[in-house]
Design a binder for these strands. Sequence first.
DNA 1: ATCCAAAAAGAATAATTTTCTGTAAAAATA
DNA 2: TATTTTTACAGAAAATTATTCTTTTTGGAT
Lengths: 152, 152
Amino acid sequence: MALDEIDKKILRLLQENAHYTLKDIANKINLSLTPVHDRVKRLEKEGVIEKYVSILNKKKLGNNLTVYCQVTLTKQTYDTSEGFNQSILNMPEVVECNYVSGNFDYMLKIIIPDMESYHHFHQKKLSVLPEVSLINTVFVISEVKSTTVLPI
Amino acid sequence: MALDEIDKKILRLLQENAHYTLKDIANKINLSLTPVHDRVKRLEKEGVIEKYVSILNKKKLGNNLTVYCQVTLTKQTYDTSEGFNQSILNMPEVVECNYVSGNFDYMLKIIIPDMESYHHFHQKKLSVLPEVSLINTVFVISEVKSTTVLPI
DNA sequence: ATCCAAAAAGAATAATTTTCTGTAAAAATA
DNA sequence: TATTTTTACAGAAAATTATTCTTTTTGGAT
């Protein structure tokens, strides 16, 4: 469970590029294949490495608009929250959803083709949820940073 | 440049799991290795597939706190923005930074071990930036959804 | 019907992952 | 202190996967 320096080096490399081969990693950290292999498998089994994914280019897929939605629910009860959560999980344009502190209840991040799609999403999918009382939209004008790399 | 249905099927699979083999993909979409291989390479070259990364478990790395920072700059000039952007790019705990519309200028997402680390980050790293005028913190109480999968 | 180009299949080769065997150092036990 | 056990690592063989090359098929255009 405890991660030593070698584990951390492996994780740093794999966070950058999941397609580094065991040999690549072994070379970079001056070890043979075996310990690298064993450690990666251990990190996967322990759940430190959750999954390997491909990062696609939003714009090349036609998703040119990113927005944050600050959502307030009608009631702050468990059932209301749960109902809302379930609906969100089925919306592919919602890539992040967090229950938060402050003047509203949820912070959502939406990735969507354009303003027209957002209008449709807002009016026909989000605001129609029975649990939703208020939506405040924050438009992303320009993306400065977006990374899956966690500090280790 | 245009993506056909086969490309989209491949992309959907690779978004889920970057470790699917060509054979896995070929089986799932009823094709031989060659076209799958060629299409993946083409999608990489065109930049539709940006990269392959490993997703690590925040908590197992000791990062138990996520917060959104809503930052207002002292001035809304290009130089002020650029200075701020550059500082942010060098902060590993900032995993997202977007220039946004509304009552503040930037929306940041911070992933950090605990409240004490956040206090330190806030006081010693963020609020000390010469471009920063105001910071409003929104704490994540519970994560409902977080995905790298884009709708295709 | 014929030609052409693009897409796909199949086979051979190269690279990578996985498994197995062995060794040395460190930790635990007698 | 000696002995056993465990852990981490190295090297090699086997299995799997990716890559490259050649051939075949398919769908338009003439």
